[in-house]
Write a protein that binds this DNA or RNA. Sequence first.
RNA 1: GGUCUGGUAGUUCAGUUUGGUUAGAAUGCCGGCCUGUCACGCCGGAGGUCGCGGGUUCAAGUCCCGUCCAGACCGCCA
Length: 591
Amino acid sequence: MYRTHSCGELRIKDLNKEVILSGWVQQSRDLGGMTFIDLRDRYGITQLVFNMDVNSGLCLEARELGREYVVQIKGKVTERSNKNKNIPTGDIEIIVSDLNILNRSDLPPFTIITDTDGGDELRMKYRYLDLRREPLKRNMILRHRMAKETRKYMDSQGFIEIETPFLIKSTPEGARDFIVPSRMSPGEFYALPQSPQTFKQILMVAGYDKYYQIVRCFRDEDLRADRQPEFTQIDCEMSFVTQDEILNTFEGLIKHLFKSVKGIDIHDSFERMSYKDAMDNYGSDKPDLRFGMQIKNLTDLVKGKGFGIFDNAEYTGGICAKGCGDYSRKQLDELTGFVRRPQIGAKGLVYARVLENGTVRSSVDKFYSAQDLGTWSERFNAAKGDLMLILAGERYQTLSALNELRLELGKRLGLRDKNRFIPLWVVDFPLLEWDDETKRYYAMHHPFTSPKPEDMAMLETSPGDVRANAYDLVINGIEIGGGSIRIHNKDLQQKMFKALGFTEKEAQHQFGFLMDAFRYGAPPHGGIAFGFDRLVSLFAGLDSIRDVIAFPKNNVGKDVMIDTPSAISEEQLKELKIQINLQNQKKTRES
RNA sequence: GGUCUGGUAGUUCAGUUUGGUUAGAAUGCCGGCCUGUCACGCCGGAGGUCGCGGGUUCAAGUCCCGUCCAGACCGCCA
């Protein structure tokens, strides 16, 4: 037997027990006459003590133990004379009688104790060492609990978990697919699913009216801190439900997770906001509602006063930062620099402050009278000591720049508290999105999303104005999930494909299986999918999803621990009838 | 495809703005001392291709060009 207890469980009530522990040497403190060893496993740390007076041979052996050696010990639980209040096992220690080295360890490249040690690259290469540390361990356990509570809730609501295939068919819409060559059908390829979308709809046709799955999805797009090439969704679909019933069901899931995992009660219903209101008031389809600072449209107030920038702008708008009227020139320059970064792309920033005597001073006083400026502060409902920040330009770009500025100010003012969670349903998304490059409409959500019945008539006249029965769940400015009521009618689906520019033949080739299924009694249905990694990272208070994934990939999609992607052998290529052509590739393959 | 930031001891970083003696600190590591430590303490020691290549210069970690790697972001992600 390797152990009778874990390194985290022994307490004062276990005094005088003979125990066997196994674990890793975290650290040793050699005081000459005696040596202390911190023995660590997943559950905690227990102090071992060796004494020259009691057993000099064993004590000498203990002094030779290096970091991360794997050892098994036998000994007696005793009360410490000096207790350590910082750890749960701090009242006791083990007087060791037998020491068995199960495995030696090379000196690790970073110490397991401190979480500041080791840069990203090293931590990724030695992920198994990083996973031994407290922060990642905490994240893995949190993730496990959230998955467990998700299953518990879904089961309680009558959902069943059904697996769907990973080797599926490549489709033209949406993200780039990861491709898997078929050996048995040379020249043909599987694709890995971007989501189980079509399968869950087919499950509805099959009558499994409440489906869910915690499932891996794959998208071959460029990565970010919150985007991995493979990621996990809580994927759900229901039949015979209205949009409201879906929102209520999954509001329940989110509330259950907050309650059971974080002990947070959310009593109120989640706020619902239309896509249009979100864009108008926050410049984003995922507004962070932990603070106000709404965007106000000033276009009508600023025109015709001789200020060319505003006169010629399609849109002029701004935000009002409460109490920031005392910002120094330097701080204002910083904000100007912020909005002028290429990623934000604003040309400049106009500011106006409300002084203590109630008058408004601005950077454009030359063009605007006191009365003019008064109308601005009225629109912002600005008070003494407030700072108005104004951008102008093309409508959409200006709104998104104002969104970035609003978030930046929220950050600077400490309004984005990681321990407050404000959920929001954004509803009534547009059905279609115009793409200037390819000169056609794309489905904003996906091609199976149903238009709002009252907007249906516009599908052929002004497709861009058609709203969809589509919704996103946003928490603290993070898009946590999204879904829609689907089209369950074959004719409408064909109409939709037509609006997307598919010929009947293309639609049949790509989605024929779904259209076929819809001919055999498809029920009305809809669903939602949540980004599980994002949800876990939100609960963990992290900005990146990498550290809630045991083995993530880096920002160019590499796993540096196993060193992949990597070349495959000539035989493998031959078997797959695949030829590599790197002629126009700058980088050359190493081997 | 683009923008920005970084790469110096095992590790985390300073030094680069303004080129100039032998490139420093902390931590880790090794050796010695130490019987109540728990960030143990004290003494001593080892440890560097300043990412790589080229250039400017009497002289380059420092300036210039190129390149690789990592991270953040824009495009992209239905």
